[in-house]
Amino acid sequence: MNTIRDTEKEIVEEFALFDNNDDKYEYIIDLGKKLPPLDEKYKTDENKVRGCQSSVWLQADYKEGKIFFSADSDSVLVKGLISMLVRVLSGRTPDEIIAAPLDFIREVGLTSFLAQTRSNGLLSMVKQIKHYAVGFKLKHSTT
């Protein structure tokens, strides 16, 4: 099975095909539109990611040692960004997620073509994902 790093590399290669920001945006919007909507019951305050101008919900489920993420946002662009995070990190063990440096964010240039405020939102999502991973790890190592 491919690792987090393998999936990151795939994304970096996909982005390498675009030579301008317009195409990158279009691609991210497309990813956002394709991300299946989150069930309304998961759009709770608890699942809300803080630090974003748009509403972002992140639901994490733990199955057989792995965490599965699903997410939604009222911003299509943000949905596109989360869809990449979900693709890289969903179905991984807590340890893998905690250890992942997620270099692809920098390699794709997401932080430089998103203005500061937006990349903060992206970092908040990463933080929340890692937070879930730590939570599940603690919960399941004590039992």
Binding site: Y25, S54, S75, V76, L77, V78, R118
Partner: peptide, 9 residues
């Protein structure tokens, strides 16, 4: 459409 998406584009 979310205002943020408009502003980014």
């Amino acid at each position: 459409i979310h205002p943020q998406d408009i502003a980014i584009l």
